[in-house]
Nucleic acid binder design. Structure first.
Lengths: 131, 131
DNA sequence: ATAATTACTGGAAACGATTACCGTTCCGGT
DNA sequence: ACCGGAACGGTAATCGTTTCCAGTAATTAT
């Protein structure tokens, strides 16, 4: 029986992860973040990094995008619905809004009788620095 | 030194995979396809299924979409650029075109100086049968 | 046809990212 | 300070996928 916690505690590790995320405007994998934490001298286990990231995603404070290769990248982001423009090389990320696209997706789905509709829209490329 | 083949051979296994793909209009994972082949009595190794699917994707005869969970789904598809509306439950897939969305993606990327631009657009939902 | 060449096959082992386990640590309310 | 349970973190397991490599079979050359 999986027990569901009813409180969320503030720990040093969660603070370190959050602080690190606030110091960057790029998307990074959990493993990259773990390595970066180690480099700045913050001792946080890889497992905890994953857990914290998932927590943030669930709380809507961060979101994740998946590279074509399958690995997940994370970053903090605002609460409003948006999508991302991500540099394939360095991970630099720009939030973009596309109200028209949202509507298009919903309309297309509705036309085919689909319900509980969601969508995945990511734009990849090389940023000016990496081109 | 990796030797690159300069011919492509037609084998029973590749025929079986292709035949199976032609019998469905849904997206399936490599493992599902492998299982389906086994059920119809076609002996094809899982490795070969993966290899053949990748071959088809490279040749532009099939394409793959990635579920939020990370696993790859495959299906045959036409050569023109398009996106997919996929049922999360049964995999039923509809090809959809969105010229306006393509242009939007390219324009947004260009505005931020990104080059070599590509995008990922998938719509998920539950089809009429699975709702 | 037959032989020589080389792509293909497939089971097992390796892989990389992520998750589960579980004993230990430590946050937070009393 | 005490206690209960949330969180930690190292290790082992899982999952989808790829690599290895020795055996098989499709093509090409003789």
């Amino acid at each position: 029986m999986t027990t569901i916690p009813n409180t969320t505690r503030s720990t040093r590790q969660r603070g370190e992860v959050l602080a690190l995320l606030r110091d960057t405007d790029s998307s990074h994998s959990a493993q990259q973040l773990h390595q970066m934490l180690r480099e700045r001298g913050a001792k946080v286990g890889l497992t905890t990094v994953y857990r914290t990231l998932q927590l943030l995603v669930d709380a809507g404070e961060a979101d994740s995008t998946r590279l074509p290769g399958g690995e997940q990248l994370f970053r903090l982001c605002g609460g409003t619905h948006h999508h991302h423009l991500v540099c394939r090389r360095c991970g630099k990320t720009v939030e973009v809004a596309g109200p028209a696209v949202e509507k298009w997706a919903d309309r297309v789905a509705a036309e085919h009788g689909f319900t509980d509709v969601g969508h995945t829209i990511e734009i990849f490329g090389h940023c000016t620095d990496c081109a």
